[in-house]
């Protein structure tokens, strides 16, 4: 369990983290969201003991980070932003170095390295210098060093940044498979990542938490959650027919006059009643569907004006 309480961090005169408190339980995959400069990386860096906070405490599995830094660091696997690694080293010698620092020796060390390189599919390039590898491979080297000691806590700062769509899929699948009985914190600004891997999402803006819930809960905060999208074969004015609706609503046109979005003002589901009217009034329908809220909407609503 990670307990962050009242974390405050200032750089010269700007406040990066403002009294941030957060508890992450075992088994959670936490998506840590926020616009650039919101304090995501700073939080990660404080959590890993790289930076120290001005105020506040962090406890990891009951141990205080400040007084037991080395013990806490042993429990954590960390992929820093940009996945830095020693470019001159070969993949295998780099992994050996990290493994030794993590306390492995001899056969056990080679076993761990083989296992982890297999997991991230790096065996083919294990004898190459890291600087000669492509971005995707470098990222995987970063992931491999973070998981070599099977950490209870995995902190990944933008793990899929700059990867191609296939590589993103691979990395996400890997994170999912690793997340059992662990705490995984992923900082990202790619929202689809949160929906696909995370069990919980926290949005921070200007160093404060502005939203905290499951991805589905956050999506439902969107204005367009449960809205009905209607596409017609030819222009037709639906606004008069819709006056029959009991719920409060507003209509937005999509594109030309043959597409509409009916948004409930209170977030109720309108699909059944709207489709009933459509059927009765014989609208020239091409398609009708209920819209799911988009995390993007919630994200920009909550973090707008922050930059």
């Amino acid at each position: 369990m990670i307990e962050i309480s009242n974390l405050t961090k200032t750089f010269s005169d700007s406040v990066v983290l403002n009294n941030l408190s957060l508890v992450v339980e075992k088994g959670e995959v936490l998506g840590f969201l926020g616009p650039n400069g919101a304090g995501k990386s700073t939080t990660m860096r404080i959590l890993t003991g790289f930076l120290s906070a001005n105020k506040g405490t962090i406890k990891v599995n009951g141990q205080d980070l400040e007084s037991n830094a080395v013990d806490v660091k042993k429990m954590i696997g960390y992929l820093p932003e940009g996945a830095p690694s020693y470019g001159d080293m070969t993949v295998i010698s780099f992994m050996k170095f990290i493994g030794e620092i993590r306390g492995y020796k001899g056969d056990e060390l080679s076993e761990r390295i083989n296992y982890v390189l297999g997991l991230v599919d790096l065996q083919g390039v294990s004898l190459q210098a890291i600087e000669t590898l492509s971005k995707g491979y470098k990222r995987r080297v970063g992931l491999a060093q973070a998981i070599i000691h099977d950490p209870q806590i995995l902190l990944l700062d933008e793990p899929t940044d700059g990867l191609d769509p296939n590589q993103k899929q691979q990395v996400r699948a890997l994170i999912k498979s690793l997340s059992k009985d662990k705490i995984v914190v992923i900082s990202t600004h790619i929202l689809e990542e949160v929906t696909s891997v995370c069990t919980r999402a926290v949005i921070i803006s200007q160093g404060r938490i502005v939203a905290d819930g499951t991805p589905a809960e956050l999506e439902s905060k969107s204005r367009y959650h449960n809205a009905v999208t209607i596409k017609l074969l030819r222009p037709y004015d639906i606004s008069e027919d819709l006056l029959e609706l009991k719920e409060e609503f507003s209509i937005e046109t999509i594109g030309n006059s043959s597409g509409y979005c009916v948004v409930s003002e209170k977030g109720e589901s309108l699909f059944t009643s709207v489709s009933a009217i459509a059927y009765r009034k014989n609208w020239p329908i091409k398609e009708v569907f209920a819209t799911r809220g988009q995390l993007e909407d919630v994200f920009s609503k909550l973090t707008q004006g922050a930059q």
């Binding site: 830094a69 080395v70 960390y78 820093p80 690694s85």
Partner: peptide
């Protein structure tokens, strides 16, 4: 410059 300082100092060392 390369950012490896963050990697090095977040390993369990002093």
């Amino acid at each position: 410059k390369s950012g490896t300082i963050e990697l090095l100092l977040t390993l369990p060392i002093n």
